[in-house]
């Protein structure tokens, strides 16, 4: 394990401040387009932030050397705002999200700075990252691959194909995080697929190291991953709230896709400001 090289000094308070800023940024962007997946981005913001700012290795010049892939591509704004913060994506591109001439659309496109593969169709990310992790393992490259999946995405058979083969291939340098927000487009995942739960047991049965955490608790995510045993690929089941941080968005399916009206936007900003003071 390379725990020694991890940023032991992960600052969860700074992460909370960043995530509030990220939510405001996403809300600002929401006012420039008719639709975006704000709620799905809000549910995985703390996950994405703690991976980029806490877990991923950097070289001596501060450049990221680990790999991150957002398999739930519809949560792209969560990644775009982090990449903007890191200076990997320019501000103008986020300002022009989904506009003609802009490189950023609803789903991350291949070839964009910071984007490792085109996602948006669910069930592709995990097997792609298994391939990346395998290449690194065979070539003896010390690099960890992080991938974030949605819970609805776990209904794709390809995810389970990859889950079955990854431990068999001896892959250990792969950490998958499931954004378990209990929602898919048409309703609660726990209602459409009640037998899917508990998820953790099923993933463990496939030979993965597993842990369940509060997906909005950055320190918990960081601690769970950085203290992993490392004898198998890891899957973190991160319990989250879809639309987290804005009361009227939380657990309300329409916000999978809708942009807030100007009034709703103002209310959301007030709520985030209130959270900051509290």
């Amino acid at each position: 394990m390379k725990e020694d090289t991890l940023a032991k000094t992960f600052d969860a308070a700074a992460s909370k401040r960043r995530c509030r800023k990220f939510r405001r940024r996403i809300l600002d962007i929401s006012q420039t387009v008719s639709a975006l997946h704000a709620a799905g981005a809000f549910s995985c913001l703390e996950i994405v932030d703690s991976i980029y700012f806490g877990l991923m290795q950097r070289d001596d010049e501060g450049r990221l050397t680990d790999t991150f892939l957002l398999s739930k591509g519809h949560g792209s704004l969560a990644q775009y705002v982090v990449l903007e913060e890191l200076g990997i994506l320019p501000r103008e591109e986020l300002d022009n999200f989904c506009k003609p001439g802009c490189i950023l659309g609803t789903h991350p496109d291949f070839g964009i700075p910071g984007i490792e593969a085109a996602t948006g169709s669910l069930g592709h990310g995990l097997p792609i990252t298994v391939g990346m992790a395998l290449a690194d393992k065979v070539q003896g490259i010390d690099r960890t691959v992080y991938v974030v999946l949605s819970d609805g995405e776990l209904q794709e058979g390809s995810v389970w194909e990859a889950m079955m083969i990854a431990p068999t291939l001896g892959i250990k340098n792969l950490v998958a995080v499931v954004d378990l927000n209990d929602f898919q487009s048409l309703g609660r995942t726990s209602e459409t697929h009640p037998n899917f739960y508990p998820v953790l047991d099923k993933v463990s049965a496939f030979g993965w190291e597993t842990v369940e955490v509060d997906g909005h608790d950055q320190q918990a995510i960081f601690d769970a991953v950085s203290s992993r045993l490392g004898g198998a690929p890891m899957m973190v089941i991160a319990r989250t709230v879809k639309g987290k941080g804005v009361s009227y968005m939380e657990n309300v399916p329409i916000w999978h896709y809708r942009s807030p009206s100007p009034e709703e936007y103002q209310q959301a900003l007030l709520e985030l400001a209130g959270e900051e003071e509290a």
Binding site: P127, I128, G131, A135, E161, A162, M164
Partner: peptide
């Protein structure tokens, strides 16, 4: 031996895994 991979009866993963290898320059 490390370069012959049998993913089993799992064609979707066969293709995506190849994509991952290619993204690493293989």
């Amino acid at each position: 031996p490390d370069h012959f991979i049998n993913v089993g009866v799992a064609e979707q993963t066969m293709i995506s895994l190849c994509a991952g290898l290619a993204l690493r320059g293989c």
